[in-house]
Amino acid sequence: MVRTKTTFFYAGAVIILLFFLSPLFWLVSTSFKNYKDAFAVPPVLIFTPTFENYQNVFARSDFFAAFANSLMISVVSTLLCLCLASITAYALANFPIRKKMNMITFILSSRVAPPILMLLPVYFIAVKVGLTDSYLLLIIVYMLMNLPFAILMLLTFFEDIPGEIREAAFVDGCSEFKTFLSVILPIARGGIAATFILSMVFVWNEFLISLVLAGKTTQTLPVLITSFMTFQGTEWGPLTATGTFIMLPMLIFGLSVQKHLVKGMTMGAVK
């Protein structure tokens, strides 16, 4: 009796996971299929894997350039963003600040605006100051896009750290900045890692901003992917291979800080 119940439970679990994982499964398996297998109906489950799609993609000179660009832009902008955000979040969490709620509301409201709103102004301004097709522009824009989110997310982690720890550090003769750097930050490292990943996933996957602001030298992977969707059809082989490849790093990172991710995504509202 108990066993049938358990069996039913696991069957249900499998169905739920199937729904949520089928696109991933399709993506990865298609990247190893040739064209005819990829679009066969009924879907082909057993096939001879081909590495041709990956070879095609890796042979492109712009693939590794785009990969390096994506990596560089997402890492640097996220790092900068976290530096700024952690300082701000620390202050919001620990200092007595008048109108703190208003400040948080202001920060939150800058998250509400659709990215498409700032795209045109930023583009035209960038042209005027000669910043188009530069890493700096993309890094600054992505940093700003992530900043509100990162501040709010870190705030929840910092608020969890008991005030006594900070006071104890003062007693030991640490300055405010030293306390922040060598006491608080290490304690919150799980949360910081989660914030880092979530901010980075956003930059890593972002399409529209990069499409408009990036150029030849700064093209990122999501934009490269859409160049497989041509006027004369989608090149599914390279597209799925790149799609799989682009997801891997985020998947590994994401899984490694899974525990903190949940909390971070909800901005700590769940306690």
Binding site: F20, S22, L27, F207, L239, M247, G254, L261
Partner: peptide
């Protein structure tokens, strides 16, 4: 239940997938 952690981990995947790519996959589905 066994695999509790794995379930939560796997459930992260849809959020991590690049939206442009998952949109295309759904279009094919």
């Amino acid at each position: 239940f066994r695999g509790r952690r794995i379930v939560r981990t796997l459930m992260l995947i849809p959020m991590i997938m690049t939206p442009v790519v998952s949109g295309l996959i759904w279009r094919i589905f």
